[in-house]
Amino acid sequence: MKIKTGLGIDVHRLEPGLDFWLGGIKLQHDKGCVAHSDGDVLIHAICDALLGAAGLDDIGTYFPDTDPAYKGIDSKILLKKVVEMLERKCFSVGNIDCVICLQRPKIKMRTLEMRECLAEIIGIDVDDLTIKATTTEQLGFEGREEGVSAYATVLLIKL
C-alpha cells in the first residue's frame, strides 16, 4: 500500500453584494468571494490538495479562469471531477483536514453541514473530514474582512 499527502491553499477577496459559498453551502453574509467560479475557497483548497497528492497539476490547469465554461460554476462540480480523476489513478481518500481563516461570519454551527456535503461528494465517511475555523484576531486581510483563506491537507491511499 502506498500513501501520499497533499496540501492545498486558496484565497479570495471579499466584496459586498456577492453570494458567499463555503464548503459547498451558501452562508448568510454581507460579502461574498470575488471569483470566476462560485469562489468556494474551501473546496478549491481541497481540490488542490487532492490533485497534488495524486501527482497531478493544480486546479487552475484543469479548470482555468479563462475558460467561460467555468464562469460561475458550482465548485461542488469541480470537486466531483477531481474525485473522478483520483479514481482513474486508483487513489482513495484516507482523510482530509481543513482550516478556514476568516473574521466573519462565525461558521462553527455550519461546519457539520459542510462536512456532510463534502464527504458525500468525495465518497468518504464524514468522520474522515474535519473543518476548523479561526479568526486572525483582526490581523491581516482576513482580520480586516477583505478576504478569506482556506487550507487543506489530505491523505491518499493507492489501491
Rank of each mutant, 00 (worst) to 15 (best):
V34H: 06
S75V: 05
L27P: 04
L22A: 03
V83P: 04
V99L: 14
G6S: 05
G60R: 14
A133Y: 01
E15R: 10
K158C: 05
P64A: 04
M85K: 15
D67W: 07
I107S: 01
L27F: 04
L22D: 01
G140P: 09
I157P: 00
I100D: 06
K71R: 14
E116G: 00
L27M: 06
C117I: 04
P64V: 06
V126G: 00
L42F: 05
L156P: 03
D40K: 10
E137M: 11
D19S: 15
D30V: 13
I121Y: 00
K132T: 12
F141I: 12
K31Q: 09
D30H: 13
I96N: 05
F63M: 06
L14R: 02
E87W: 03
Y62G: 07
V93R: 03
P16I: 00
A49Y: 02
K31R: 11
T130L: 11
E113M: 12
D58V: 10
E145L: 07
V99T: 11
R13M: 07
L112Y: 14
I9Y: 13
D10Q: 06
E113K: 10
K76Y: 00
F91P: 10
C117A: 04
V82P: 01
L22H: 04
Q138V: 12
L78K: 15
K158F: 13
K71A: 14
D57L: 11
S37F: 08
A35R: 07
D58I: 11
K89E: 12
T153E: 13
C33R: 08
E145A: 11
K4T: 14
G147L: 05
D10E: 15
G39P: 07
K26E: 00
V41I: 10
A49V: 04
C47M: 08
G23T: 06
T130Y: 10
H44S: 12
R144T: 10
L112T: 13
L86P: 08
R110N: 11
A119M: 07
G39K: 09
I73D: 00
D58S: 14
M109W: 03
I131E: 08
L42T: 07
V154L: 07
C47N: 12
L86V: 01
A35N: 08
V83S: 11
H36C: 08
I100K: 02
H29M: 03
V82D: 08
K132G: 08
T136H: 00
E15H: 00
S92H: 03
G123T: 09
I131P: 07
K4H: 11
K89F: 04
E146A: 00
L159A: 09
G55Y: 06
I131Y: 05
P64Q: 10
A133C: 09
C101D: 10
A69D: 15
G147I: 01
M1F: 13
M1S: 15
G24S: 11
K132V: 03
G23Y: 03
P16W: 01
A35K: 07
F20C: 09
D128W: 01
C98K: 07
L118A: 08
A53G: 15
